[in-house]
């Protein structure tokens, strides 16, 4: 632990403005980007292979999936110090924090289970058998349903958060990576990386409403691989990262039409908005950088070098 203390003391700089926190999968670090200056202000060591990252509701804690350390680490975002590890099951890749601000729902990629962890008691509450290589995790805003997507089984598993039982399984295209409910609870979006599609479900009936496809001039269809995505708060626009096609698609959430494509860095993974939603920060795994997109004009405005294989991103206002 000695390097942590050292790093924390060296790096605990003033934290004034809003920040974007980016996990660097192959550097075992987090790069902290200042939203005002668009510069990296801190680099914080983590456990091995950090991927999923999310803040507690009051931003007093940041949760990090340290996949190869088989733990979810809890960090003080001010000092950058790891406070303690939560039990997480093996190989935690991605998670969601329930709206109760207390339970983390974790996808354990190697074990084909979803683990529910109580962050207060620091113990595992439940483990639910799901398909092979669970990854995408979504919780409905009303807190009633959690969805795990499994990459090899190609399903979204709908789990009742009260009973911890699977209530439905819906097939999607190959290698589902990410899932999100819309803010009104009405719809669930699931991206399929190898299938090259995003499927939209009706939450009430669990029926497929739409399948969104992408086509970028000059890019082979095979390389258009949807992974992470984010919705604008007005519920009108979705930004979808398209992996090795090096583009982010802008999708109209009412018509499901793709309105434009934005060129970003190589193998774009996940993204996070600035607190005022005027900028979008994308993690570009292969090029090791973050592209800043101006949301209004839908133009990339800056590239920021971070660590090796940036993966997850989270906003700290």
């Amino acid at each position: 632990m000695k390097h942590l203390i050292l790093a924390a003391s060296v790096l605990a700089g003033p934290a004034f403005g809003a920040e974007i926190w980016v996990t660097n999968e192959k550097d075992d670090t987090i790069s902290v980007i200042d939203v005002d200056t668009l510069e990296v202000t801190r680099t914080i060591p983590t456990g091995e292979r950090p991927r999923g990252i999310t803040f507690s509701k009051d931003y007093s804690k940041v949760y990090i999936c340290a996949s190869d350390s088989n733990a979810v680490q809890v960090m003080d975002p001010v000092s950058g110090e790891i406070l303690y590890d939560l039990p997480s099951g093996a190989d935690p890749e991605q998670f969601v924090l329930h709206p109760d601000d207390r339970h983390l729902w974790i996808a354990n990629e190697d074990d084909a289970v979803t683990t529910v962890v109580d962050t207060v008691e620091r113990k595992v509450v439940a483990q639910i058998d799901v398909g092979i290589e669970p990854e995408g995790m979504a919780v409905s805003p009303d807190g009633k349903i959690v969805v795990t997507t499994s990459e090899t089984t190609n399903m979204a598993h709908w789990i009742d958060t009260t009973t911890h039982q699977i209530i439905a399984n819906t097939l999607v295209d190959s290698r589902p990576r990410h899932a999100e409910f819309t803010d009104d609870n009405a719809r669930l979006w699931v991206s399929s990386e190898i299938g090259g599609t995003v499927t939209v479900f009706d939450t009430a009936t669990k029926a497929e409403l739409a399948k969104i496809r992408f086509a970028i001039t000059g890019v082979n269809d095979d390389l258009v691989q949807p992974v992470g995505f984010e919705f604008t708060p007005d519920g009108k626009t979705a930004f979808v990262a398209l992996g090795p096609s090096n583009h982010v698609a802008v999708v109209n959430m009412e018509t499901f039409e793709v309105e434009s494509y934005i060129l970003v860095g190589r193998r774009v993974w996940h993204m996070a908005f600035s607190p005022d939603h005027s900028q979008l920060f994308t993690t570009n795994g292969v090029s090791g950088d973050v592209t800043v997109i101006d949301v209004a004009s839908r133009e990339p405005i800056k590239t920021i070098k971070v660590g090796r294989f940036p993966w997850g991103a989270a906003t700290r206002p």
Binding site: A112, G131, I132, T152, T153, N154, M155, H157, I166, N169
Partner: peptide, 10 residues
């Protein structure tokens, strides 16, 4: 085994 894991849901 991979098929069976998917198959148990279907």
């Amino acid at each position: 085994s991979d098929n069976a894991t998917t198959g148990r849901f279907l």
